[in-house]
């Protein structure tokens, strides 16, 4: 008869196995876990997330809360719900005027500025001394906006301005570039286009540099002229740059007001013709102390920009 009972050594081995099975896997140290690939990226982006939360998300949420209150920044906010939004959209006679002024300003500045910048960038890419030209067109961008405004005030002055003097020399009338309510905003658009031209040209130049010259060579071999090269090759291949320039210009146009503030001595006149929504909001907040209503204006403007950007 064979003895089937386990030997003592087998029993010990079995007991040791059971102990091992019952035992939990060893815990990894905190340092080991922090250095794992899954956690490391979060550690790197945490400062940015914290920065974003403190300086973007919290102010956004706070501004929304403020937009639902009446607050003059000196005493406690009073809850008014959506009354500011209701007032702005249904009662305020100025809000809609400033809104359409803003739309006109943003649309006209890209309508004139973007094609002009594209054409000039294309022309200068093929010209001698392109760096010099680019630097000259870039100068308004690095000039202080107050200086820009004062220079243009002298140029556009009804009586003594260079432009009207030149028109007078040609026997023409003297438009009130900054004093006629029908002309003032267009004048501001033209100055803004002049200011932004160098910046947009630089972006288009970068886009043009990325277009392979072989496309043009092939087109010319097939008999294409300069106009056809521009419209059939340059414009389509520049589309990503154009889209970027259009969106960034439109967004900055929607929230821009510095030039109007300086050109019109802070009044946005004549007859509020140069009062854009951002200027209206600025005066509402810091002159009228209507922080709640100004926050509501900011949110309405934000909504418009968001929708346009998504489209």
């Amino acid at each position: 008869m064979t003895d089937t009972s386990p030997t003592a050594s087998e029993q010990m081995l079995s007991a040791a196995r059971e102990d091992l099975i019952d035992q939990e896997p060893p815990r990894r140290s905190l340092a080991a876990r922090l250095s794992s690939k899954a956690v490391a990226p979060w550690i790197f982006i945490t400062p940015m997330l914290l920065f974003g939360a403190v300086f973007f998300i919290l102010p956004l949420l706070y501004a929304f809360f403020i937009s639902l209150t009446r607050w003059n920044s000196l005493s406690a906010p009073k809850w008014v719900g959506f009354k500011h939004y209701e007032y702005l959209l249904t009662t305020d006679p100025v809000f809609w005027q400033t809104f359409w002024n803003t739309m006109y300003f943003a649309a006209a500045s890209i309508g004139i500025g973007v094609p002009l910048a594209m054409v000039l960038a294309y022309a200068f890419t093929r010209s001698k001394g392109r760096t010099v030209w680019r630097s000259i067109y870039w100068l308004p961008m690095i000039t202080n906006v107050v200086a820009v405004a004062y220079i243009w005030k002298f140029v556009l002055d009804d009586r003594y301005g260079l432009l009207n003097r030149a028109l007078g020399f040609l026997g023409l009338g003297a438009p009130g570039w900054l004093t006629d309510p029908n002309l003032a905003l267009t004048s501001v658009v033209l100055i803004f286009v002049w200011m932004q031209l160098g910046h947009n040209m630089l972006l288009f130049s970068a886009g043009l540099a990325s277009i392979d010259e072989s496309y043009y060579e092939a087109a010319r071999l097939d008999g294409a002229n300069e106009r056809q090269c521009f419209f059939r090759i340059t414009v389509p291949l520049l589309m990503p740059t154009t889209l970027f320039v259009l969106i960034t210009n439109f967004i900055s146009g929607l929230s821009y007001f510095t030039l109007m503030l300086v050109l019109t001595d802070g009044n946005g006149g004549p007859l509020r013709s140069t009062t854009v929504t951002a200027l209206y909001m600025y005066k509402m907040a810091f002159e009228d102390l209507r922080m709640g209503r100004a926050s509501a204006v900011a949110y309405l403007l934000f909504a418009v920009i968001l929708v346009i950007t998504l489209i």
Binding site: R159, N164, L167, L172, G173, A174, D265
Partner: peptide, 14 residues
Amino acid sequence: QGVIERAGYVYGPS
């Protein structure tokens, strides 16, 4: 050019 050069009375932008 029809622009008032010397005004009899003036207001202002503020």
